[in-house]
C-alpha cells in the first residue's frame, strides 16, 4: 500500500458535496476538464448536453452560484467550493414534485425534440431566481444564447410569460 498526497476540490452538486482529486490520472479531474465533462462522465448527470462545445448553443447551461453558466466552457477546477445546480436538481428527489418551470414546460408543450430543453429551463431558472417577473424582452435577452432548431422559441416565451404572469 502506498500513499500519495493529491490536491482535491469539492463541488456541491444539486445539494450533495462531491470530492474529486485533481491530477493527470484517469480517476482524477484533470485541470483541463470541463464542468460538462465532470457532470456527464463522472456524475452521470446527463441532462446538460454538449452540442457545440464552444459556448454558442446553450445546451450545456447549468447554474453555478446562482448564475447561468455554460458548463462546456467552464473548468471543473474553477468550481471548487461552488454550488452547481443542474436540471436533475430541480425535481424534488423525495416527492418527485417538479419545479414550476418544469411543470409549465410540460403543460404548455414548450419543447419538441427536447435536446435544448435542459439548457433552456436552467437559463430561465437562473433568470427567475433574480427576476421573478421579467418582461418579454428581458426573457428574450436571457435566452439569446440558447439555440433551438425545432423552433420552440415562441412556445418557451409564451410559457414563461404565462407562468410568471399567473404567479404575479
Amino acid at each position: 500500500m502506498r500513499t500519495e498526497q493529491k490536491e482535491y476540490i469539492i463541488l456541491n452538486v444539486n445539494g450533495i458535496d462531491r470530492k474529486f482529486t485533481v491530477g493527470e490520472d484517469r480517476t482524477d479531474v484533470q485541470p483541463s476538464e470541463t464542468l460538462a465533462e465532470t457532470l456527464r462522465n463522472r456524475l452521470d448527470l446527463t441532462a446538460a448536453k454538449v452540442s457545440c462545445d464552444k459556448g454558442a448553443c446553450g445546451c450545456c447551461t447549468v447554474i453555478v452560484d446562482g448564475e447561468a453558466t455554460l458548463s462546456c466552457s467552464t473548468l471543473t477546477v474553477e468550481c471548487d467550493g461552488k454550488h452547481v445546480l443542474t436540471l436533475e436538481g430541480l425535481e424534488d428527489p423525495v416527492t418527485g414534485e417538479l419545479d414550476p418551470i418544469q411543470q409549465a414546460f410540460i403543460d404548455h408543450t414548450a419543447f419538441q425534440c427536447g435536446y435544448c430543453t435542459p439548457g433552456v429551463i436552467m437559463t430561465v431558472k437562473a433568470l427567475l431566481m433574480k427576476n421573478p417577473h421579467p418582461t418579454e424582452n428581458e426573457l428574450k435577452e436571457a435566452l439569446a444564447g440558447n439555440y433551438c432548431r425545432c423552433g420552440s422559441h415562441h412556445q418557451v416565451i409564451e410559457t414563461v410569460m404565462d407562468m410568471t404572469r399567473e404567479e404575479a
Binding site: T46, A47, T86, L87, G114, T117
Partner: peptide, 21 residues
C-alpha cells in the same frame, strides 16, 4: 393530450444517444 415524452424531457430523464454509457 400531454406528450408521452413531456416529463422525461423536462426533467432530464430522457436519454439521448449521446447520453448512453
Amino acid at each position: 393530450v400531454e406528450r408521452l415524452d413531456a416529463r422525461a424531457k423536462a426533467t432530464g430523464a430522457a436519454k439521448f444517444t449521446v447520453d448512453i454509457r
